[in-house]
Design a binder for these strands. Structure first.
Length: 317
DNA sequence: ATTAACGCCCGCCATC
DNA sequence: ATGATGGCGGGCGTTA
């Protein structure tokens, strides 16, 4: 189960990473069919805790309240070294089988505690090399948004923490509940679909713009049939090279990406209009409702109608 | 829901 | 050597 979440408020904590945990786990969303968690804040020395921005927060609880937490969240922080007492909490949580989530440089706390030894992990791309060097027993994945290894989840820079937090919600409570939170936060329910454990990060390569223009053109022509052969011709490449370089740059294959974009657009239309599913299927390039349904079930694990029922505009009356 | 034809993706590899 | 290219075959996801 996932009920009690404890946020380790380490001195030098970064406000954004702190806030993102509050946003995901600290708001009662039961009024819109979403989950409700118990979010608590723990620090080694209760009282004023200075953040990385110089602003100080008052934290009342000490680390003892973390003893029965279902999830320990470790946001980024800029102070070093970290107090041994935090490391103890982290080790204890892993030993108990509780979830542990780190965001950005928070991964160093987990590594320091030793719970990353023999595991896969990630951190902000600026720190991946340092993490790997300092902790040789850890397999560091660069170029991913987050990594789950057992119940230990590490995430890359800042906003990837949102993806990782939602991932945990999805694992424990299902995609529906995670989507409610995502929708309220106005973030994509899951960047890239599927239940892939490793999500390609957009920060991998730096020649993003080479395929960005092609991608943009594809988006404008979603309704049309877009065979790879035609796309390749437009990009002045052979089909083989186009497919290969598309995957290298975009992290997915052309058709997979295309289907994902079509789903995203269909989601918008289902949410914001009352057009029939058949019409939306035609307008998004799926062609027929059955094809659209096929992809919805595969990626979102719901049907178009069920999706609309959950997120669609409640028409007055 | 099941099936069959189709198109895509990727490993392999000769080539540039 | 090193690295990108693109044709081919076959497994597999998508579409009818």
């Amino acid at each position: 189960v996932l009920r009690k979440v404890v946020l380790l408020t380490v001195p030098g904590v970064m406000p954004f990473e702190f806030g993102l945990i509050c946003e995901v786990f600290g708001i009662d969303r039961s009024d819109v069919g979403g989950p409700r968690f118990e979010l608590a804040f723990a620090t080694a020395n209760p009282g004023p805790v200075r953040t990385s921005q110089g602003v100080t927060m008052i934290i009342d609880d000490d680390l003892s309240i973390a003893a029965d937490a279902d999830l320990i969240a470790v946001p980024a922080f800029d102070s070093a070294p970290i107090d041994e007492r935090y490391l103890h909490v982290i080790r204890d949580a892993v030993a108990r089988g509780a979830w542990v989530l780190s965001i950005c440089s928070g991964a160093f706390a987990l590594a320091e505690a030793g719970v990353l030894d023999g595991r896969r992990a990630t951190t902000h791309w600026m720190h991946t090399a340092r993490l790997a060097a300092r902790h040789p027993l850890t397999t560091v994945d660069a170029d991913v948004l987050y990594v789950q290894d057992g119940k230990v989840v590490t995430s890359a820079g800042t906003s990837a923490g949102i993806d990782a937090a939602l991932h945990i919600v999805r694992k424990e409570l299902g995609a529906g509940q995670a989507n409610v939170i995502a929708r309220r936060m106005v973030v994509p329910p899951q960047r890239d679909g599927g239940q892939a454990q490793f999500i390609q990060s957009p920060v991998g390569g730096d020649r993003i713009d080479s395929f960005a223009s092609v991608a943009e053109w594809m988006l404008e022509n979603l309704v049309e049939d877009l065979p790879v052969e035609q796309l390749a011709r437009k990009a002045h490449m052979s089909p083989r090279t186009f497919a290969r370089r598309f995957r290298a740059d975009m992290g997915t294959t052309p058709t997979a990406w295309l289907n994902r974009q079509r789903i995203i657009r269909a989601q918008q239309l289902l949410e914001q209009t009352s057009r029939p599913v058949e019409a939306i299927a035609a307008e998004t390039g799926f062609g027929t409702a059955s094809v659209m349904r096929h992809h919805f079930v595969k990626v979102l694990r719901t049907s178009p109608t069920a999706y609309r029922r959950m997120f669609g505009e409640r028409l007055a009356g």
